[in-house]
Design a protein around this nucleic acid. Sequence first.
DNA 1: ACCTGAACACCGTTCAAGT
DNA 2: ACCTGAACACCGTTCAAGT
Lengths: 212, 212
Amino acid sequence: MADERTRAQKSARRRSTYHHGDLKRALTQAALALVAEKGPKGFTLTEAARRAGVSAAAPYRHFTDKAQLLAAVAEEGFIQLNEALSAAGEGSPDPKNRVIELGRAYVRWAVNHPDYYLSMFGTEMVKRDHPDLLVAGGRAFDNLVDAIASCLDSGVLEGQDPLEIAGPMWSLVHGVASLAIGGDLCDVGIDEDPEALVVRATTEFLAVAEPA
Amino acid sequence: MADERTRAQKSARRRSTYHHGDLKRALTQAALALVAEKGPKGFTLTEAARRAGVSAAAPYRHFTDKAQLLAAVAEEGFIQLNEALSAAGEGSPDPKNRVIELGRAYVRWAVNHPDYYLSMFGTEMVKRDHPDLLVAGGRAFDNLVDAIASCLDSGVLEGQDPLEIAGPMWSLVHGVASLAIGGDLCDVGIDEDPEALVVRATTEFLAVAEPA
DNA sequence: ACCTGAACACCGTTCAAGT
DNA sequence: ACCTGAACACCGTTCAAGT
């Protein structure tokens, strides 16, 4: 209504007791903060609504359910991861070195943002149900595929399909990130820094595909 | 009441409508079934109690909280994984081949028991808080370490500490298992069978550490 | 169109009380 | 010692009703 319009426009003064403009964005922001604070496990739709200043039922005007709000968080995670990877890739002109640096940047980002990472690869929702999430995830993955393709093109690595190398490589990198976040490496007595470990492992792994 | 008592004593001779004997075991069994049916996410302490035929408060006589019951499930998972790995190891006398077969068996077990696997590596509880879990996990991991140590001893692989190879190797194998279960590999267009992928990847990885 | 309020069917957990 | 019953403080979700 007219009243609401005004309120929204001077939000700097009036705030949002009346939840005007983009509650959707406010909820996503609140969800992001909550996941960062308490992890994806402690994230609650009700509390996200509370922080956004609306009733517990309000979110259902913008998200079909809790999982969809969590998917929005995960999507933001993939976007940020993608940015971290792009930056790392641009900083490493040499194609093979770039692949290694992508691995390092991936693990670094994951370890520094464990809650995001868990929301991206946890089981609270099924990616398949959230197309935007698949797109964002695919974009992040493409950094790796492109770098490997460069290696193949320039003859630094041998192989046909870059995916044949990208699969194992992603598995390795995700495995390190995942086990590091879970504390599992430490639990079995591996105290090596995860970044160092992934650099060592990817370097060795890539050595195999080198031309003779 | 008296009625219930009678029921307890017969139901196949003795049974446990009266829940006496080992409710702890009954709860663990119920939890196992629930996790297998609905995944660790859908697992509920209340329903585990319901299936065991007791009130929602009863479990607290045997477990401090929900996480501890889930830890019992995860521990059982590690025990079964350990058995699968031991069997695979014994079937492969050649040391290097044994390492590869351990990777294959690991991924196979994980893909065939995704709910167990998720309860073992999910975030519903912190392993650190459950010593038995660390022990069981360590035992499973030792299969890999021992096999790698055999390779070093027999000179099939070069290196100092088996953990230096076991770390990347576990990361790789866990990464494949984890991404396969989550459907992430398929999502980015990698349709290769996870077992085949892990065999290929570990074989290549081990080739690097071969003596010249 | 967007939000509230009240309601429903659940949870995990605690605690007095029973046997 | 082990379990129940009732209670508490939450959830996610739905739906009529307000503006």
